[in-house]
């Protein structure tokens, strides 16, 4: 019973973080900030949702070894997403930078060199 509550909480909070990431992708003003939101949402919500699923599965199969093996395979999925998703975010941002997309900065800040670059 307690494990079920924990797993449901994890899944719902994972979906909540995903909702935040989607809102960020739509509403952020700049390419780089949007990519940042995508990278965050992908990893954290995946961990929570898949972790919740793994816990629920192990509980309904009474913590047998076959169920623990299934949970280990789900852990492997989490590790794979953790390695690949931020890497793809990084490479996309780098490609955007190389293509010349300028970040949107504040007007009078001293970091703003876009007006001086030719």
């Amino acid at each position: 019973m307690i494990i079920e509550i924990i797993s449901i909480t994890m899944i719902i909070s994972g979906l909540f973080f995903f909702l935040g990431a989607v809102a960020g992708i739509i509403r952020f003003p700049d390419f780089y900030t949007r990519m940042h939101a995508a990278g965050k949402g992908d990893t954290l919500s995946t961990v929570l949702v898949i972790g919740g699923i793994a816990l629920y599965y192990m509980e309904t199969h009474h913590w047998e070894w076959s169920a623990i093996l299934v949970a280990l395979k789900l852990l492997a999925i989490i590790i794979f997403i953790f390695i690949s998703s931020p890497t793809s975010t990084h490479i996309l941002m780098k490609a955007g930078f190389d293509a010349g997309i300028k970040p949107k900065l504040k007007e009078n800040s001293e970091n703003n060199t876009t007006s001086e670059e030719s």
């Binding site: 794979f80 390695i83 690949s84 890497t87 990084h90 490479i91 780098k94």
Partner: peptide, 15 residues
Amino acid sequence: FDLIVRISTRMLVPV
């Protein structure tokens, strides 16, 4: 040449 992409590819491809 991007170090991050190289290293993560090197980790993932054998698996």
